[in-house]
Amino acid sequence: MTSALGYAIAGALLVAMGLAAMLLHHHLVRRLIAFNIMGGGVFLVLLGLAPGHGEQADPVAQALILTGIVVAVAATGLALALARRLHQAGGDVRLDHPSSREDDDDQK
């Protein structure tokens, strides 16, 4: 098994872990972190599957990932601004119904 394939497998596992965390947590900042972990996994898969020449990785894959990172940063910043606005409006950063908040993240 080449190291590149190892990166791709690690990326696939990160996507699954991020997906689980995104579904399990209700706190929006935790979901945002999970979203970023999923994104990191996708980048690892992209780079791991791109054909490389020894030390030199595929420049097209690198450029695509760089583009993806910048867009992910923009999306994260916008999501944080939205979460902060939600916090200002209601004092909370969860999206679930108020009645189901008693048994939430903290008691898992």
């Binding site: 696939a12 596992l13 996507v15 699954a16 997906l19 689980a20």
Partner: peptide
């Protein structure tokens, strides 16, 4: 999610 992860791998 475990199934999804294994399928992705």
């Amino acid at each position: 999610c475990t199934v999804v992860g294994l399928a992705l791998v």
